[in-house]
């Protein structure tokens, strides 16, 4: 997992709780907490930090991950405004993730372990995003989509009928634009 994800997690904890809480979480995990945006760190380290935040704050892990997804979008949008500026609509932005954003990320980082997205558009204003990743971070993806919806000021609902956590090899995120 890239350091930038850890950086945004730190921002979220510091903003919503305090610097001290973040220090305590790092201490409880016996990690030094030095994360550089472009560097890769073990996935486990992030999952342990999230679990520790959940324990400390009493937030359910899935609620926390989704909230983090929303905050992560904001953090990434601030750092990489180019991708947001390139698209005028939420749908346009979401559809550019696999072909544009991930391509750009690959230019910057070797072996970034990106998830795969497939898209299917229906006439009834829904967009199916099929998510595949060995990390199974579909809840984080949902949060990121909600963060994007807030940024583009677009109301959506997300259905998640097929999930990797329920034995499928992919997740179906069905977005309805309302």
């Amino acid at each position: 997992m890239k350091g930038v994800i850890f950086n945004v997690l730190e921002e979220m904890v510091v903003e919503q709780y305090s610097m001290q809480v973040w220090n305590e979480i790092l201490e409880s995990q016996s990690v030094d907490g030095i994360y550089t945006a472009g560097e890769s760190y073990p996935d486990e380290e992030l999952f342990n930090l999230v679990s520790s935040i959940s324990d400390k704050t009493g937030m359910m892990p899935n609620t926390l991950i989704e909230a983090f997804g929303i905050r992560l979008f904001k953090g990434l949008a601030t750092r990489y405004p180019l991708f947001i500026e390139a698209e005028d609509t939420l749908k346009g932005f979401l559809k550019s993730i696999d072909s544009v954003i991930h391509t750009e990320v690959r230019k910057l980082y070797d072996n970034p372990n990106l998830p795969d997205f497939e898209y299917a558009e229906n006439t009834d204003d829904t967009l199916l995003m099929r998510y595949r990743s060995p990390r199974k971070l579909c809840i984080l993806a949902e949060g990121l989509i909600r963060g994007a919806a807030t940024h583009y000021d677009t109301a959506i609902t997300i259905d998640h009928p097929v999930c990797m956590h329920k034995g499928s090899d992919h997740c179906d995120l069905i977005l309805r634009f309302i």
Partner: peptide, 24 residues
């Protein structure tokens, strides 16, 4: 702390821009 953080973000942005240039 916040000033240092901004400086770090700037440094990372610089690094990424250079990485992109090198890649291209």
């Amino acid at each position: 702390y916040e000033r240092e953080k901004r400086a770090r973000l700037k440094a990372e942005e610089l690094l990424e821009n250079k990485s992109r240039e090198i890649f291209l």
